Structure formats: C-alpha cells, structure tokens
Amino acid sequence: MPERGYVPGGYELIRASKQDFQRKDINQRPVSGKLLGLSYFYKMKMTRREVMNLYLSVIRECLETGISPRCHLEDITRSDIYGFVIPFCVELMKLMDEYKIPIKIRACDTMGYGVNFPGAVIPRSVPGIIYGLTTHAGVPSELIEWHGHNDFYKAVNNSTTAWLYGASGVNCSLFGIGERTGNTPLEAMVFE
C-alpha cells in the first residue's frame, strides 16, 4: 500500500558486517536494519574506535546504495553512553546530513536492565538514554525507536517512558512473545 506510506517488502536485519551487507537480496530493500553490538568490544578484539569505524563504514555503504539504515544499538543499557553511543550517533547524524537519507536509531534494551526511576543514571536510565540521543547526539525524535526486552517485567514501563522522553516508536510483539524473554506487548501499548 504505497499510497499510505508503507514500505513495500519490509526490511532486512543483518549484522554490521560488509559480508552480510554485500548479499544480493539485502541490496534490493529500501530499508536495512543493522545489529550494532555496544557492550562487547572485547569479543571483537578491536578498540572502540576500530568498532566505530567498522560500523560507520557499513552504514556509509548502505547510504551509497540508497538504502536507509536502521541502526540497532544493541545492549544500550550496558554500554558507554557518553564514551561511545553519543559520539557514534553524532557521526551517524553527519552521514545523514551528507547523504540526505534518514538513519533510524533503535535503542535496544537487550537484557531488560533499563529503569525509569527518578535519579537513575545512565546507562540504566531510559530517560537519560533518550535525552542523550536527542540532546547530545542531535538525533531527531522521529528517528528514535525503543526496543525493550521484558527480562525484569519493565518492558511496558520503559517503552512508555521512552515515548514520553522523545522516542517516536516502540517495537512490540503480540502478547509479548518473541526474542528470549519477550518484548513489549502491542496490546499493552495500545492502552498506553
């Protein structure tokens, strides 16, 4: 239904690797999701700068082919917000300005560690994460999504908080089924 603004054919979800991106079927989609691990640099045996450069090179390759990337900031509630996430998102916004193609940011609370308590600090603070993305990294609200897991039964609260602080979208599943411990239930967010 292109007349309603729906993206035909959905989008692909791949790791932030050039090998995954170079698959022929990936390049036929208008939008591509990239999994960008934020908390496990030691597993990659790379410095943070090397990881950032790798991720940015894959995003640049997407943009050069006209694909609008959706960057999944995995493990955001276990990451170095001001040492990596904010500088990385600043660079993404520069690429977005250069290529004039939107880059969506999906803040993923992959372990369900996020909280919305007053006084909570980042990286656990959901308000702090969204505030940091919008204010310090300059990511427009309409390009921020929240993807919360329900390990500690906070997916609905954290999703609502992300909305209230500026995220324009929340990723949901029916009855909370999916991805290990479950995601934010769509039916709960309808009431929110």
Rank of each mutant, 00 (worst) to 15 (best):
I177L: 12
V139T: 05
D20W: 06
E192W: 08
R49Q: 15
T135V: 14
V51R: 04
I86S: 02
P87E: 06
D97T: 15
H72Y: 13
Y40S: 07
A162F: 03
T134V: 14
T110K: 13
V190R: 08
V190S: 04
E61S: 00
H72E: 11
R4V: 10
G5W: 07
T160L: 14
A155R: 09
T181D: 10
E187M: 07
I26V: 15
H72A: 09
L36A: 03
F84G: 11
I81F: 00
S159H: 02
E61K: 02
P185V: 06
N150W: 02
D75F: 00
A107V: 08
P123E: 10
S168L: 10
E145N: 01
K18Y: 06
M93L: 01
M1R: 06
M96Y: 03
M1V: 06
S39P: 08
V7E: 04
C108D: 12
T161Q: 00
E179I: 08
M1G: 02
R4M: 13
M1D: 07
V7T: 09
R78T: 04
S17A: 13
E50W: 01
E142R: 07
P123K: 10
V51M: 04
G138R: 05
G33T: 10
Y55W: 00
L54S: 03
M46V: 04
I67Y: 09
G33A: 14
T77K: 02
I101V: 04
V139P: 09
T135W: 11
T110H: 09
A188W: 01
I86V: 15
K18Q: 14
G37W: 03
I144A: 02
K24N: 15
R4A: 09
D109T: 06
C71F: 12
L36E: 11
V90Y: 15
P123Q: 06
H72D: 07
V121S: 10
C62F: 00
C108F: 04
G83D: 09
P118Y: 01
S79T: 14
G114Y: 11
I101G: 01
T77A: 09
S68L: 05
G83T: 06
G119C: 10
A137R: 11
A120Q: 06
I105G: 01
